[in-house]
């Protein structure tokens, strides 16, 4: 079984690497208007692999580092693909693919290095809680990436620096739309996460360390960001900065979870 798991994890890493280099070539040659069907196929294979793992353990596959990283990689690439399809702007897809590749590489490394534990069953509410939490994390990360890119592009335009970012990114307007979409997805997912935690009965649990209060804070922040209309340039700037703060927070949470384990066990 371990051989199959390792093979799938390594194959996905290689495929994401190939997709990443293909996207880099596309970017250099000039932006293509549609996403490659190979990307959707890869995502489908990845999803099927994780569903099998979920069926195998009878819960959302977040019980080990390699499962969590792989799920996060899948969520991030899916979110980027959905955003690219919805907006018709794929200029940021390469950054999503890059992060996905890194996460999948991490997943493959963990799956190789550790004994795969025997499946432990967790409840359906816990699974939903964990799944939406990681969708929320993926949404915050995606919003954060777009926030950073928006701030960098704005700086590049303002200071008349016509480098790689100026040429490869589409526009402030488009990035602003993408940030709002990502913050909206993150806010809804985090709201569901917090809602399910009420059913789980662990609410604000002191044993979960700073994870729960930060998650609650993020939900509040992203809820506000999702509700505030995309009206002025100043609002977009605030939204971009808040997304960056959100990204920093989830990086902290991820490090905490990797170090101390997920509290949703």
């Amino acid at each position: 079984m371990e051989i199959v798991t390792n093979s799938v994890a390594i194959s996905l890493t290689v495929i994401y690497g190939v997709l990443l280099s293909g996207e880099l070539r596309t970017m250099r040659a000039g932006r293509a208007s549609t996403t490659s069907p190979w990307m959707w196929l890869t995502v489908a294979i990845h999803l099927v692999a994780l569903i099998f793992r979920g069926i195998e353990i009878g819960a959302c596959p977040v019980d080990s580092h390699w499962e969590t990283l792989s799920l996060l990689a899948l969520l991030i690439v899916t979110m980027h693909l959905l955003l690219a399809s919805a907006s018709g702007d794929r200029c940021t897809l390469i950054f999503g693919l890059l992060l996905t590749f890194v996460l999948q590489l991490g997943s493959a490394s963990f799956s190789l290095g550790a004994q795969i534990p025997a499946p432990r069953s967790i409840g359906s509410i816990s699974s939903l809680h964990a799944f939406t939490a990681w969708i929320g994390v993926a949404g915050v990360i995606t919003a954060g990436i777009h926030g950073i890119l928006w701030l960098l592009l704005k700086r590049s335009i303002k200071t008349s620096q016509f480098g790689l970012l100026f040429t490869s990114l589409s526009s402030l307007e488009s990035l602003s739309r993408l940030i709002r979409l990502a913050t909206g997805i993150a806010a809804v997912s985090l709201a569901i996460t917090v809602g399910t935690s009420v059913f789980l009965g662990n609410g604000v649990d002191s044993s979960s360390g700073p994870v729960t209060p930060i998650s609650l804070g993020l939900m509040g922040l992203f809820g506000v960001l999702a509700l505030v209309p995309r009206s002025t340039g100043t609002v977009t700037e605030w939204r971009a900065w808040c997304s960056v703060v959100g990204l920093a927070s989830v990086v902290f949470i991820s490090i905490w979870v990797i170090s101390f384990g997920p509290h949703s066990r």
């Binding site: 526009s171 402030l172 307007e173 488009s174």
Partner: peptide, 9 residues
């Protein structure tokens, strides 16, 4: 070109 980078169109 700069206008397009700011306003998207």
């Amino acid at each position: 070109k700069v206008a397009k980078k700011i306003h998207g169109k």
